[in-house]
Design a protein around this nucleic acid. Sequence first.
DNA 1: AACCAGGTAAACATCCGAGGTCTTCGGGGA
DNA 2: TCCCCGAAGACCTCGGATGTTTACCTGGTT
Lengths: 236, 236
Amino acid sequence: MPVTDVAIDKIKNMIITGELAPGDRLPKEAELAQRLGLSRSSLREAVKALCLIRVLDVRQGDGTYVTSLEPHLLLDAMTFVIDFHRDDTVLDFLAVRRILEPAATALAAMHMSDADIAELREHLDTLDDTPTVEALVANDLEFHRKIADGSGNPVLCSLLDSLSGPTARARIWRGLTQEGAVAKTREQHTAIYEAIAAREPELARSWATVHVNGVEQWLRNALGSADEPDTTVTPS
Amino acid sequence: MPVTDVAIDKIKNMIITGELAPGDRLPKEAELAQRLGLSRSSLREAVKALCLIRVLDVRQGDGTYVTSLEPHLLLDAMTFVIDFHRDDTVLDFLAVRRILEPAATALAAMHMSDADIAELREHLDTLDDTPTVEALVANDLEFHRKIADGSGNPVLCSLLDSLSGPTARARIWRGLTQEGAVAKTREQHTAIYEAIAAREPELARSWATVHVNGVEQWLRNALGSADEPDTTVTPS
DNA sequence: AACCAGGTAAACATCCGAGGTCTTCGGGGA
DNA sequence: TCCCCGAAGACCTCGGATGTTTACCTGGTT
């Protein structure tokens, strides 16, 4: 195994064992390199790799630090990974989202505070009467993020966040091509909000299922009929 | 932005745009470095980072290649990320698994081939009458992996695989300390298998829910968080 | 005492070049 | 035809030199 990979493991273990706690600063490059028994060049490769997955945070002129290691940070890195998947697997991601989103919405109906729910209402109201498709999708993403956050499970929230990215493009495409999609989205958002506000987990779950299923069904048909559609739509 | 990060983005884009396809070989270090306008050292940092998340695969003496980019490969990298989470967030991961596992089991009941189901049966039979806890948990992991694979959704399968790792330790702990846990696990596995073999998605889903919930409830008590709110809503 | 500008030192960023090691592949002999 | 072996190509590792950025101390001013 290359020394760089060994170094990655060693640093990883230093963090897992608690020798390095979140927020801690690593020894300077030269020192750490000597301690791990490799050159600065190789150590830098290890550090850069751990940076990409948000485990370390390097600040030029200052030092290298362990991040907070919070779930949202580490799962954010998954967004980078998901970017590599093309449209042919987007249905699989959407299917997972179709499982998680209703569950998160039900949890939100139970766990969100009254203040959170009021904020959700306000967020819905910030949308124009005739929004652009991009604005609607951006609002859509934030709406579902607030709900996921309201589930009280940061892992679930981050996971849904990561899954929403790749499907956003599909939602924009749908908004542009399917008549009535915009209005239907608003109606369903309102319905989801009202179910949460009424503290009705099962109703909220059902509306969320309907909502995600709408995108999934449309996408399934679209991919079935017209093969490779236009992909030049700007992601939000 | 550091040149290394720019290089990461450029390589990423080369892959996303299709300039580099899965399995393709990258230009040699010196050549690619010149083309991207940076030194070999910096380029190597970028390559190493993309290796960690399984986007690139370097073979000494041969060259650097783009991996297959299959979902299971890229999501495997998430296991590395999850390793950094300690026990205090394991409940959150388990909660997500509690959502996904029943859904995957129900899908498996619908999609697994007869051959797959027979294989599942054989796998259950490979276990001794009095297995060690470690052997049981290993068998447990593989059992659920086969079911997740049977769901027909590679993204769901990989995600569950990643989530199973951190909870495996908890399951071992449980097997060692809770009387009857081993026998109960075997009974529930058999029940799940029979529900799948009978092509009863809802029954399979219910058994899976019961199964995962057993670990979750035990862990919740073991961690002493009796103040956790109610989460017993039934998945649809 | 509080505040601000300047300078210094520490740490990371980048580059270069020199060996070392491993894999692949083709040639020569049995 | 099969096996051994050597050469070439590609990545691995190292050490040092130089540039950039940031944090912090210092001194003076208000």
